[in-house]
Amino acid sequence: MANKKAFHKKESRSKPLPAETDTLTEISKVIEQKHNTGSKKVEICLIVISLLFLFVMLLLPLLVVVISALKDGFTAYMNAVTDSYTIKALTLTILATVIAVVINTVFGIFAAWTISKYHFRGKQFLVSLIDIPFAISPVIAGLIFILTFGNIGWAKGLADLLGTKIVFAVPGVVIATIFVTFPFISREILPVLNAQGKDEEEAAALMGASGFKIFRKITFPHIKWALLYGIILCSARAMGEFGAVSVLSGRLRGKTTTLPLHVEILYNEFNTTAAFAVSSILVILAVLILIARNIVEYKKKQ
């Protein structure tokens, strides 16, 4: 309203003829109304469409998960959730996630730092390399590792040398998880580091600060929210990873099954209630991550 008034005033000042001013005001009023009602309608339409879509595609399936999980009563639900295979799958999922997050954090910071602070040949190539897990299907990623570390793989000797089995074992699950999640953290930090520029670090270095001190006092405070956000995205993706883990783990029940794999096994055995009950654990984890994500996003904006 205030806007409109200001507009009228200006109009009358520049056009001193009263009759003309009136018509002009009328016209602008009509235009404004039309414009307003038009955009309002579009706005409502768009909101309704997006809400409907989200309800059908996201909320409804989640509700189904919860309802199906509790179909045979709370006891059956608790039995499925506290089953020893489920606990083992949960433990493995969390283990793989934690290791993937730690390794990807270190790698992500190094990669983002290198890319944003140094000029070198093939820099763009390195940036593209980091994105490979986004581009390659996880199943193929799993196969790549089988062909590398499996019985016919060229690097089998390396795994034997380390005294561990990689394919169809826990290390395989961890490697698969790391592979599919490694772009998340570096991708989040990179734009923030690029925006910061080199000046502050150069200034600190000129005063004789060590590399570690520069990172701790200048770089880290700058990237910490982006880093946390990346960690959250990375965790979410790591917990839900199915394809690569499915191929590389061999699905040895109780040994190399993560939660998503366990759900699939239960489902294939027509144990629907248990499958949904275990799924609900993943849903709860997802909701927790979502809440954390929103908090971090809010802080990041501040």
């Binding site: 000046d199 502050e200 600190a204 270095a205 000129l206 006092k217 200048i218």
Partner: peptide, 18 residues
């Protein structure tokens, strides 16, 4: 540079913002 006994004022000051 840190051992040359110099002080440097950057164009955009490069103050440590945190």
């Amino acid at each position: 540079g840190s051992k040359r006994g110099i002080g440097f004022v950057f164009q955009n000051y490069a103050l440590f913002r945190y």
